[in-house]
Structure formats: C-alpha cells, structure tokens
Amino acid sequence: MQLANAFLAQVTVAYVEPPLASMSSDGLNMARETLEKWGIPQPGVEVLEWAYRFMGAAGYIDGFHQMTPFQQNRLVSKSQHQELVLPSTYNEKLRLILRRGDIIRELRQAVEEDQYHVTVIGGSGERKMAHDLIEYIDSSIFVVNNFKEDLTYKLLLCVDDSNRTRLAVKTAAVVAAALNLEVVVLTVSKTTRFGPGYTAAHNWAMDYLAQKEIKHTGIKRTGDPVTTFINEQGTDKIIVMGSSSGSAIKKFFRGSKPQKTLQGSKSPILIVK
C-alpha cells in the first residue's frame, strides 16, 4: 500500500485459490451454495477481509472508521473472477477480488485485463516460479520476502548497461522520494575492469538521484553479480533492478540475473519492467 501511495495508484488485493479438480465442480458448487446459506464464507474472503481491515486501520482507506460494516457475502461474479463489494462506493482506491486457478495464469490474466503496473506477491525461491513471475506477467514484480513492517529499508538499486536499468533508476527515485528512503547504487562487474557501459550507467544513476535530491551512495564491486547483489542486500535493503531484455528462449533455459537474484534473495525485491 505504501508502494501504491508512492505512485498514487489504485490497489487490487487478489486471493488466488489453487485450481480444484473440474471432475468435482458440481459438488463444489453445491457445497459453496450450502455454505453460503449457512453464512460460512468461501476460502479467501476472510483473508481479503483481513487485508481490508489492516489497510483501514493503517489509514490507507479514506473514511474507514465511518463506513458500514464489512459484509462477507457481497460477492459479485465477473467474467473471470469474483469481486467483493466494499462498504463504501467512494472507496475507489481499493478492490478485493477472488480468482481460482494456476497462480501465474490468473495473475497474467488479471494484469492483462486491468493493466496493473506492479504485481506484489509473497516470496518463492523456486526456479520455475521465479522465471514465470518475471517472464509471463506483464508488469513490474515486487516480491515481498520476509518484509519487516517496523524496519526502515534502504533501496539497493542494481545498475548495469541493460535496457531497463534507467526505468529501474526512475522507479527507485519515485519510491525513495515518496517514502523518504536512502538509495544505494550498486554496479557489479564480473571482471576487475569496469567497461564504459557500466561506468556510464552507474554515473547516470548517481546524477539522476542527485538531481532528484535523493539521499544516495554509490558502490562498485567485482565478482559474481547475483551473489554480490544478495550479499549486499542483507536483511535491511529492498533490491530494485530492471528485468532482463535478453532472449526469451535463453532465459527459459539458462535464467537471467533478475531471475537468479529473485531465487536467491531472502529479502524484498522489486523487478521493474
């Protein structure tokens, strides 16, 4: 929600229920109807209610305390998902939706339908999941590994000569400015020599942040980039990096820097597209 506030963006909280065997769908429908009659909410509704209350209590929802109570059964079926009707119509900044199916397929579809800019998701260290999240979902990805609410994070901005580095720098600048965070600009070369591309990218990032009056420091390291990113991140920094613009086939079989970083990182990471 803080991230959304930084971009003045709308937020949709989606609960994606795992796919259920279609052979049982009539029984499942019957069970859902009976449960509804008994006033027992379907899985996910209580999670969404918790998210709503949490955001309301934290002050992210205007007029939260004056609103009528949350009603679990106010579900409206849309073509590909169900949406919970919130207590107030002026609460347009937040949507709560339920989807069912393969998580990647559902998130991809949601992003395609509603043109989300950032998808926020809990952590996963699986190689396939990391690949699918970055490659198949057409939005920036913020993976919230071990997020600590009470910690003031720094942004670890990973810079190289790839196409999307500048976009990552600009995004980091917006987030840092809105949340008053310090930025550490990190460039890692595999060899002892920093080529002109890496040097230019690093200098451009430093200049840009200075121009935006954002507190920042710069580090240049040599070694394996992914290991260095993860080591430098520690537990108190959020990695911000651009997605890879390399060949889709190569990324499928060999992975990419963002994928490997996402796989290995134990702290939050934002991959910008």
Binding site: M23, S24, G27, L28, A31, P43
Partner: peptide, 14 residues
C-alpha cells in the same frame, strides 16, 4: 485430495 469429489470438496474448505 484430488481423487474423489468427496475429498476435493473437503479440501476446498481450506
């Protein structure tokens, strides 16, 4: 959970 409708329905309760 996926083998029979009975187990699937129970599983879907979460």
């Amino acid at each position: 959970a996926h083998a029979a409708p009975a187990t699937m329905i129970i599983y879907s309760s979460g």
